[in-house]
């Protein structure tokens, strides 16, 4: 169901929203949360997730913290102050947009045709 184009356009907001609700998350955890919350409809590929995470980090919206877990490095992401502000803004923008879309996509009631005059 979920088109790649829709995900690409909203992934930044999805990640920001998830991180705003959690103190910190690592890459795999983010992909699992998205799958869980979307009822397994959205499966984030590595290619979709990691370039966005690095972009958000380079924009100063995320900070990272590495920990050793079971002999491997785990990189946790958390929001900066700027990231928290942008998360609020982006989520509200997307909510507004989905409302607009809902209205557009809702079936338009067809005007009843008056045949009596014929």
């Amino acid at each position: 169901m979920s088109s790649k184009e829709f995900i690409r356009g909203t992934l930044k907001t999805i990640i920001l929203k998830l991180l705003a609700e959690n103190k910190q998350l690592y890459g795999y955890e983010i992909s699992q949360r998205v799958a869980e919350l979307s009822g397994e409809e959205i499966q984030l590929t590595y290619g979709a997730l990691y370039p966005v995470l690095y972009k958000l980090e380079s924009e100063g919206l995320l900070v990272t913290n590495s920990e050793i877990v079971d002999n491997r490095v785990r990189k946790y992401y958390s929001l900066t102050k700027k990231g928290h502000e942008l998360a609020k803004e982006k989520v509200s923008e997307l909510q507004k947009f989905t409302e607009i879309l809902k209205n557009i996509l809702a079936p338009i009631p067809q005007p009843k045709m008056n045949l009596s005059g014929l």
């Binding site: 690592y26 992909s31 491997r72 990189k75």
Partner: peptide, 13 residues
């Protein structure tokens, strides 16, 4: 850094 992160992702999966 990316390799370490993908390793953690794959191992977690």
């Amino acid at each position: 850094p990316l390799k370490a992160e993908l390793l953690d992702h794959l191992v977690s999966d």
